[in-house]
Write a protein that binds this DNA or RNA. Structure first.
Lengths: 345, 345
DNA sequence: ATTAGCACTCAATGATAAAGAGTGCTAACA
DNA sequence: TGTTAGCACTCTTTATCATTGAGTGCTAAT
């Protein structure tokens, strides 16, 4: 199964030429541009072997060869030379991130923008997973006598608001008191824990005063409900239009299929929900989503304080500049994790 | 200038046929499908007149006629029969809106989804304009001894958070006190007014206590800054991919140009920032943005308590189903305004 | 093992012809 | 005088067919 050295070089040549030109690569081209001391005929023989082994394929008899998914896989795993980003690009990322202030969602959206701008493919990112962070502060605010606003701040700097409707007015003092108790009892719990908390037990902690219990019973279930609701997936994507520049999407129907996938947030979430620590490359038919069988996806996770809380990814054709995209994704997750951790302190 | 009745009918026939088929319309078609008691020859004569008057044009000699922008304009203003939505569609809108709970941005995004789903064109919407609403409640929350969270609730139910960094710890009691004073002084002011408030004057109101003044001086400028910042345009769009189904975008380059416009939030904001009360139809070259010279835009404003706070719009080819889109936009703004007003109460 | 040579395949290109849709104009008609 | 049938004309669309050229696989020579 181990490929001879020359076969490796030829495969690499074919893949890199194809990545650059999107045209099937012939033996002549390989001989002229890559392995100048080997004749086309020899290369043809090797190519026939490579095809038999499934690394490359031929669109039709009189065309050059095109890498198969298996070919790309080998390339990504073993052949490709990984070169780091240059200083300029590195700087670019930092600078673009610096421009954003304020809410965390903006930061994430900016990451998505940077990612698609640098790669010229489509980017997708998940917002920090709320439930993986833990409660730092809870504030109940009486907006008027029908509405209470609950503000939740978590350690990763995520802020969530939710309005709680109430039937009867609640006295200021009581609400404040409940707020204090809740903060005291709940601080530090992860949101996931919080969502499953035992209301009855908490009630006991509030003490015997009937008004307190009443208010708690009114407010808490609604709050938990709101939490569960706001847990829903938040996925952003950017740069889809970039793909229209690529010859593989000169067919409008293909482009449309692709865009439709990008609009299905649940699908995207699935794609990104891989919680491995490393950069993951999914090539062509390795994708579970059949609409993406001609696409490759490169994902990585970002974290806060060493805890993985979200992912970013790049979606493009299988003919993707793997090396470059991997470098970019790598750099970006690191910057993102860094900035997140810094923001909070 | 007034068009004879028959010319009107012919123009209407041409436009409606063209809207449905995207094919140039010939005299034979008009005679057969629309004006069955008039011969093609007669219609040819009329069409020659209409062309001379600039209402229709000919892609080339041996093709039928196509409406010009001027033709569409007349059609929209005078010829088109406006038919209301049927009960089902009406129901659909209400139902889809009901599905959304919680934050106002979600409601707006949902409006955008509904709009593009029903029209099969691209939709764009602006989030409620923060500065046109007025302060209902301000809450300053000490998250930790370096960060204060300011939560602003306005009468239209918009909630904004912003983190304020501080160098020195602030005592709980003082912050609470300041919070009370600010609420008392600022409640009811519009955000626009708030952004231009006189800090010195407020300082006087706080009274002579030096700590209060210090805190106010630290917190308020940052708060106003955050307000100004969060005032930035928020525009959502949806359904861009719908346009790929239309023959006018079978040319990928055109599609790309269109998508690029949709990614320029500032441009979109300009488009929507028309603050007239009615539904506005902008046809083809009437558009200031030259990339949209082949597009039509239908916009309308939504309001809260009778105050206009945002707009929604539909962007499609000039060959647009004007009547239908207008009905949908109309219905949607009404529903939206209604729901907004209800939510707040 | 490598390579030159050659016949073969097949998509892409381009030229040409035929078909078809629609027009404008003229002359006849009510 | 407005309407219509008839017809020549224009121009796009479509199909057909030959040509070109890139690339291959195989064979025989090195």
């Amino acid at each position: 199964m181990a490929l001879g050295r020359r076969k490796q070089l030829i495969l690499q040549a074919i893949i890199e030429d194809y990545i650059n030109t999107a045209e099937p690569v012939g033996s002549r081209t390989v001989s002229k541009k890559y392995l100048t001391n080997v004749s086309p005929a020899t290369i043809r023989n090797e190519m026939a072997d490579l095809e038999e082994m499934g690394y490359i394929e031929q669109p039709h008899t009189s065309a050059g060869r095109v890498p198969s998914d298996k070919g790309y896989r080998l390339y990504v795993d073993e052949l490709m030379d990984k070169k780091a980003l240059n200083e300029q690009e590195y700087e670019y990322i930092r600078r673009e991130f610096m421009e954003v202030v304020g809410e965390i969602d903006l930061l994430i959206k900016q990451a998505s923008r940077i990612l698609s701008a640098m790669t010229k493919y489509a980017s997708i990112v998940t917002a920090p997973q709320f439930k993986r962070t833990s409660l730092k502060h809870l504030q109940l605010i009486k907006v008027d006598n029908r509405n209470i606003l609950a503000v939740i701040v978590t350690d990763a700097g995520i802020i969530k608001n939710s309005i709680i409707r109430i039937d009867n007015d609640i006295e200021d003092g009581i609400l404040e008191r409940i707020n204090k108790i809740l903060n005291h009892k709940l601080m530090g719990l992860s949101i996931a824990e919080l969502m499953n908390i035992d209301i009855a037990k908490l009630e006991a902690d509030v003490g015997p005063i009937i008004e307190y219990r009443q208010v708690l019973n009114k407010v808490l279930p609604e709050l938990l409900q709101a939490l569960r609701y706001s847990e829903r997936v938040e996925v952003f994507s950017d740069g889809a239009a970039n793909l229209l520049d690529l010859p593989e999407y000169s067919d409008v129907q293909k482009a449309k299929d692709f865009f439709n996938v990008l609009n299905e947030n649940e699908l995207l979430y699935e794609l990104l929900n891989d919680v491995s620590n490393n950069i993951t490359v999914t090539i062509g038919k390795e994708n579970k989503i059949h609409q993406l069988k001609d696409c490759s996806l490169i994902t990585a996770t970002y974290s806060y304080n060493g805890k993985i809380i979200g992912s970013i990814g790049v979606l493009g054709p299988t003919r993707m500049k793997y090396s470059r995209v991997i470098s970019i994704v790598d750099c970006l997750t690191q910057s993102l994790s860094e900035i997140l951790t810094k923001i909070v302190k």
